[in-house]
Amino acid sequence: MSKNWWKVLASVFVLYSVVAGLLFKVPTLPILHESIRNLYYHVPMWFAMVVIYSVAVYYSIRYLQTGDENHDLVAVEAVNTGLVFGLVGLASGMVWANYTWGAPWPNDPKLNSAAIATLLYFAYTVLRSSLDEEQKRAKIAAIYNIFAYPIMVVLLFVLPRLTDSLHPGNGGNPGFGAYDLDSNMRFVFYPAVLGWIGIAVWIVNIRYRIRKIENKRNQI
């Protein structure tokens, strides 16, 4: 049980964010109204996605260093899970944008960047499926993954800051700090982010273990 403490912690954080996110006081802002509470649910998806893509890159680097097949398996499953979180983040963002910015796909650099970053990782999966030989596939996929990662960082964190954006913190818009001057939101937001990162890592962990068993079975 002691090995599972982080899973329990992540679960508690997520459950706490569900309750507190709905009940606690939020700043009263025009346009956003109550929908500001989406911050607790929509934004953690992106945090979780970026964290597990970073995990994928870490294991890709480890794979190139050691040639251990298991590292490649972690990288694949991290990318697969990251894609799920990215798609959920995009979808939830579209719903939110539809009611606050007036359109599901306002021409916003952060949206476009997120969509392109998702395409980047779809390209990774296509690259993998185009190769048959296992070691070669692992190696080339790892190389592409490492090559793509800095580009994704530029897409998600640099480009939106250069252009006008509807998202807070970009292109002259006030940062996240302006929305929680009373800092009450931090009490919910940070646990929510940590909790979802924990859940994402947990899912990666489960998928990796399944993959490992499948892999073993295929080899026999």
């Binding site: 606690f24 006081k25 009263t28 009490f187």
Partner: peptide, 9 residues
């Protein structure tokens, strides 16, 4: 936390 939630706006 409960105090926080009771704030009036």
């Amino acid at each position: 936390l409960s105090a926080v939630s009771l704030f009036a706006q």
